[in-house]
Design a protein around this nucleic acid. Sequence first.
DNA 1: GTTAGCACTCATTTGAGTTGAGTGCTAATA
DNA 2: TATTAGCACTCAACTCAAATGAGTGCTAAC
Lengths: 343, 343
Amino acid sequence: MQLDERKLTILNAIIRNYLETGEPVGSRTISKYTDLNLSSATIRNEMADLEELGYIVQPHTSAGRIPSDKGYRLYVDAMMAQKDQEVREMKELLLEKEEKMEQLLKNAAKALAVNTNYASMVTAPSVKGNKVKFIQLSRVDAHQLVAVIVAEGNMIKNNMLTIPEPLDDETLLKLNMLLNTYLNGLSIEEINLNIITKMKQQAGIHSDIVSEVIDAVAAAIQEGNDLEIYTSGTNNIFKYPELSDQHRASEIISTFEEKQMLQGLIPQTSADEETGIRVYIGEESPISSMKDCSVVTATYELGEGMKGTIGIVGPKRMDYEKVVDTLKDLMQQLERIYTSKKK
Amino acid sequence: MQLDERKLTILNAIIRNYLETGEPVGSRTISKYTDLNLSSATIRNEMADLEELGYIVQPHTSAGRIPSDKGYRLYVDAMMAQKDQEVREMKELLLEKEEKMEQLLKNAAKALAVNTNYASMVTAPSVKGNKVKFIQLSRVDAHQLVAVIVAEGNMIKNNMLTIPEPLDDETLLKLNMLLNTYLNGLSIEEINLNIITKMKQQAGIHSDIVSEVIDAVAAAIQEGNDLEIYTSGTNNIFKYPELSDQHRASEIISTFEEKQMLQGLIPQTSADEETGIRVYIGEESPISSMKDCSVVTATYELGEGMKGTIGIVGPKRMDYEKVVDTLKDLMQQLERIYTSKKK
DNA sequence: GTTAGCACTCATTTGAGTTGAGTGCTAATA
DNA sequence: TATTAGCACTCAACTCAAATGAGTGCTAAC
């Protein structure tokens, strides 16, 4: 059997309708909804075909049909293809410029959640490829140092480190010079063993401290890489009956609380597609707790290699169109703010 | 009518039983549960009295009784009085020492939630009275400075600030000296106009920058004061049927997501009581979204005036005894870790 | 003062009946 | 041959009444 023009129209009508109402849609509804001028009986025949093809399912006999994951997939793919050509005017999200990256991202997550009515997440840009702009090691007291690292995009990290023996001013100054000369402008991957060995040589008797500091720097940068994920609007899921039963809700909320679990949603393969938008429908999701949801993520890129992810989690019947637009908008804004900050 | 010995025993039995089961408890149950050897009929008479006195209520005729807020209050007060004398061995929460305050507090929140099975919150110690240990202003690039402030307890704050004109090294060094000489060892309240004026005078032509820096310092410290609240175990509320219906759950979870709203739970009046533990039962709670819950908070104190709050939110029928113990334990541990870090 | 006994209440459960939206199939129709 | 009207059928959801049972309050006897 083939998926001809008419079947597609009907499938589309079914999905559209279901997105709105959340109720299984029946043949009579479609017969009126579309301008095909077909009787409900004909629609029924077509629907039977569509079911056989796997695009829609019946929750039970004598109920209408709802889209299957496969059906959504078709719909979303078609939509995305169409999007690419279209020129869209976006509704503005109004992100304010913030001095600190952290606050900016928190706001972004919130704006996303408020705008879409779904749960949102925003990860800090991975520091992969992010360059160190400034490092400073300062003495807090005799046995404690604080290492402050500012990276591009004004991401500030700091780490305390305890040293066995006090350092005098001069040594500290030297260390700072050393650190900055060697590390400034480098990204974390570029700090390899070679450089570390060289630095240790230069440091002489303080080589043990150098390695501690470098560890601290690495740790600080890594830390951001690991778990800085901002979320918002978790309780939006209560707005969708199909997600708000006890078990499901609890599972989703747990995932959002244990933010590390959301890392699964961050695309690993830095894909070659241009838009950077991914849609996971139901079982497609990399996280099992989201198997009843759809997840849409977008990758934003600040300069070379500094990538972060923004995304939303909602019911399968989400307004994919709006979500994709909103995500694109936010991506652009983040990128714009970044470049304006850089200069 | 009076609340004699026997009535108290019965009230206690009712509450105990209800804490366990969450179901209204009837006279027959109590008649067996206690060793008073009274028939259910007698218990019934006593229960009627207890109801008249307002300690218990009937959800409807022909149901058992459940404790009223007033009943819980009596129970909790009695328990607390008893606690004070008792010597208790505590189950350890095993907080690891962390270099950074932030991580320590996150862990504390988590430990609290896991241990009690309720939702938990931990606020960073208010910086009221917290002394500045170290300030450093560094140039990131021509127009941006980063101010790093380390306060007692190794709370690190930082702020970026943009300056209209570049500063040369010498001026920066001077500024740093100035900042440290004037501000080190001071707490935020102690930084008054008088000091600021003096500093501005000293700074000469850079007085505008000094005031910007001081603003940044104030902002950084204030920031921590405002909204650094760590939460954990929000989804624990789903474990209690009386809280996990859609509306209630959503309300509680929202409150935990908008962490600022939890500020209402932080005791304002630095009370004179010795334990620092407060119990809000149902309507007593300062936050309306918690009117179906009980909230237990404890204030920990790190050195003079540096106070923070830890607390849990759960159903009214919570295991107050365990919660109070756990909170006390955690308070002590935080205090211990702090003092060990200070030296 | 305590208790056995009994009538009464009322949330909850159960099951039968009704409704209504929806289907699949078949025979008539264009 | 594709479309449609018609009809029997299904089944979740709703309604209603009866049955259940845990629990009470009251009274009279111990």
